[in-house]
Write a protein that binds this DNA or RNA. Structure first.
Lengths: 150, 150
DNA sequence: CCTTTCGAGTTCCTTTAAGAGACTCCGTAA
DNA sequence: TTACGGAGTCTCTTAAAGGAACTCGAAAGG
């Protein structure tokens, strides 16, 4: 497909999609976060085509989400999350919470998260960074910002 | 392309991607949330192909994320978020927060959100649903859950 | 020294999806 | 009776995903 370029849109959602919106990219991020750092590990775990994996890894490195670290005298690299990439994992946590609630069915969630601070199995909850109260779709009004188009 | 089916994977991230992971779907959701409820409005605002818009809307309705509401005696429908869909907007808020921080550049965020509870321009912050402390990539350990594969 | 092996890509080919734009269909209004 | 508006549908071109075989470089082993 000749895909539309989301990066140029005056919308942070579209721009974020340009970084991790392609098929497989969020799952690659998930795996790297979970400690799968090498090409063949990722390829085997995901069952992704090697060609596509190469493209995705290059893109994620170009975008500053992943870094290549040599681990051998041969040209061998591990992929690790940058700070920018680690903060993208928040997105995965929210996807997990939504998928667990709406798509897991009788079997229940495939993965549970234990929170270090309290030691409990838990999920993420969205709060206002300013007042700490819940912040969801119906709790906010969008306004044009400084970077608005036009 | 013959795309891999994410819905069957034992992973809530993959399953969520099966619902809104296709190109354009998050932007359609954004527009519907912002009050663009009709086919031609969406098509004009996004610049998306009519064929692809039809496919995406059908899929989102099938998945229970959007609902069709007749608004005319002719076969005319408005698309509205279901509860399931409105909760997906959380994902968009997190994408916005990340994009605003890492991709907005000098111009600043294209859109600002005012929080009803406190009246301030703010962004979302992830907290543990159990203890209320911050919950991010480094604050948790994944464990196998009841719906784990195999 | 010659051959294997291993990990990380790269190349080639087929299939499927996105983009673009014209066309259809149906009720209403002029 | 014709024109119009809104929501799709059809067709064709281009690009991307899947799959599998191939390459390449450094080490290891006989």
């Amino acid at each position: 497909m000749q895909r539309t370029n989301f990066a140029e849109m005056a919308c942070s959602i579209a721009r974020t999609l340009d970084v991790i919106g392609e098929p497989w990219s969020p799952l690659i991020l998930r795996d790297v976060w979970a400690g799968m750092n090498r090409f063949d590990q990722l390829q085997a775990d995901l069952g992704i085509s090697r060609k596509v994996l190469t493209e995705r890894l290059n893109h994620l490195v170009d975008q500053g989400v992943l870094e290549r670290h040599p681990y051998d005298r041969r040209p061998r690299y591990e992929y690790r999350l940058t700070t920018k990439g680690a903060e993208l994992v928040d997105l995965l946590l929210v996807m997990t919470a939504w998928g667990d609630k709406w798509l897991a069915g009788q079997a229940g969630p495939p993965v549970l998260y234990r929170h270090h601070a309290c030691g409990q199995i838990s999920a993420v909850d969205l709060r206002c960074a300013h007042c700490g109260e819940p912040m969801h779709a119906g709790d906010i009004d969008p306004l044009p910002g400084p970077g608005a188009a036009g």
